[in-house]
Simulated scan of single mutants.
Amino acid sequence: MRPTVTPCEDFNAEEDAKALKKAFKGFGTDEDAVIEIITKRSNEQRREIATVYKTMYGKDLVKDLRSELRGHFEDVIVALMLEPVEFQAKELHRAVSGLGTDELSIVEILGVHDNDEVVAISNAYEGLYQTSLESDIKGDTSGTLKRLLVGLSTGRRDESCDVNEEAAVKDAQALLQAGELLFAGTEESVFNSVLCQRARCQLRLIFDAYNNLVGHPIEKAIKNEFSGTVKDALLQLIECVRDRTSYLATRLHDSMAGIGTDDRTLIRIVVSRSEKDLEDIKEVYYEKYGKSLAERIADEEEVPSDVKKVLMQLLL
């Protein structure tokens, strides 16, 4: 996994705190100074700056940033300042709050993280909102979709590295009997159980076994047996399991496809993967779409120029 953002070697939290305070003085804010500091530090260093800032000036840096900045520029800078699990918890809350539910963002956040990360995010969610992530998912969704998302939110996926071909064939047969071979309807619980609990490496073996049994990929079965948001969620989850890096590259591409831009998804993925595997995602993006991710973002007219500056710095 290759990040694009690494800790600053000549880091001085006190000097950075002074520079940020200076950027807030006078009419308007020196946005370039804010961008230069925030994007060139690791998340741990940014939070150290916030601690020193409070000691020096008696003020909360994130609150000062919120008061100085606006719109999606505020969103991306604040996202960079938050502890990663807190940021993901806030993104999940946004996905289940308000009108409608952003099911695909929920699948993305819960699908790309490992068990310990999902549990940490769930704990952060409960600490922030005094209610559990599971209860909010249950209150905002229903039926098969609710059971799928709740299953992902538990953080109970098998994470062993061992694979078992015989078990993979049995699971593939169970999926076949619960779906395409079932005379009427679909036993959704079998799909949820396998997709939410089996190890990622084992699932890839199960997908291969399914294809060998019926002569077509499991995605075709999902399209035949499910519809609407459940179908979309399952297809996204399978894509994520097959290749997380490729899946995130696709999510970035889709966030800028068509009319308008899904700014939240674009910001979330670039910010959250910048210290993990954004360099890998950039490489796969270019291979899939024939254009660099930086070029694609630069061409996106719907993305504000100040947000572009931040994202470009994170992509370097």
Rank of each mutant, 00 (worst) to 15 (best):
E36N: 14
L80K: 06
G258A: 03
L69N: 02
L99H: 10
E180T: 12
D114S: 14
G100A: 06
M256C: 12
K63L: 05
L278Y: 01
I218T: 01
A23G: 09
R242N: 12
R242Y: 12
Q202E: 06
C240F: 10
L315T: 08
V214I: 07
E44I: 15
D162C: 11
E159R: 09
A167F: 07
N123E: 14
R70S: 15
R296N: 10
T229H: 12
T55N: 15
K138T: 03
L315A: 02
S122M: 01
A209T: 05
L316H: 09
R147D: 02
D162S: 13
Y289M: 07
A33I: 03
A33C: 07
T55C: 06
C201K: 12
R268Y: 00
G290L: 08
I267K: 04
L278R: 04
I297A: 05
R273D: 00
R70W: 07
L278D: 00
L82W: 08
R198H: 04
A120H: 10
I137F: 03
D136S: 10
K90H: 10
F183L: 13
L311E: 06
A17Q: 03
R204G: 09
G71A: 11
E86P: 00
N211A: 11
Y247A: 02
G215Y: 04
N212V: 09
I49E: 03
I137N: 00
V169D: 04
S153G: 01
D171F: 07
T101R: 05
L152S: 01
N115I: 04
I38G: 01
E187R: 14
P3F: 02
K59W: 03
Y129M: 02
H113F: 09
I35W: 01
D116T: 14
F24I: 02
E44K: 15
I35E: 00
R242T: 15
D243R: 04
G260S: 05
E74W: 08
I37F: 03
D263K: 11
D136Y: 07
A95D: 00
Q45H: 06
F207V: 01
K90I: 05
N43P: 05
G28V: 12
R156S: 10
A257C: 06
L181D: 15
G28F: 08
E83T: 10
I222P: 03
D114N: 14
A23S: 15
F11W: 10
E302S: 13
Y247S: 02
L128D: 00
A294N: 10
P7G: 08
C161F: 13
I206Q: 01
S246E: 13
V150P: 06
A120E: 13
E48S: 06
R264L: 04
D75W: 07
T265S: 14
L182Y: 06
M56V: 10
D162I: 13
Y247V: 02
L237E: 04
I281D: 03
D280K: 11
F73N: 00
F24K: 05
P304C: 07
K59G: 01
V194K: 04
N192H: 09
D306Y: 10
I267W: 02
A249P: 12
D277F: 08
D114G: 12
S274H: 05
R94Q: 10
F183A: 12
K146W: 02
K90Q: 14
K18V: 07
D114R: 15
G139A: 05
Q313F: 08
K309L: 13
S305K: 10
L82A: 01
N212M: 08
S142F: 03
A19Q: 14
K276E: 11
K138V: 11
L195V: 04
A79P: 05
R94S: 09
